[in-house]
């Protein structure tokens, strides 16, 4: 599974680095390092929805506060 987090300036100011850190912690906690690749991405062109995150070609709108919820519903949900 590939997760890309937008690191454009707008998403950066809305906390993309915290989102990345949180996701990384969650991935480690669930020992999913081999199953998930987490990387940065250029601006996804949807700055008003930032922090933008792309999972399986679908764009999600996150904030540092909703990261855990996203991880549990979308990431763990999809991994089954």
């Amino acid at each position: 599974m590939v997760i890309q987090v937008c690191i454009g300036s707008s998403c950066h100011l809305k906390g993309s680095r915290s989102v990345i850190l949180k996701l990384q912690e969650l991935i480690q906690k669930h020992q999913l390092e081999d199953k998930i690749s987490l990387s940065g991405s250029f601006c996804m062109g949807q700055c008003q929805k930032g922090v933008c995150l792309k999972l399986d070609e679908e764009i999600f709108s996150l904030s540092p506060d909703t990261t855990v919820e996203f991880f549990e519903n979308e990431v763990l949900g999809r991994l089954g």
Binding site: I7, G40, F42
Partner: peptide
Amino acid sequence: EVLDHITEGGTDY
């Protein structure tokens, strides 16, 4: 390298 190693907490851009 920046995009692929974003989790290392090093270079931002």
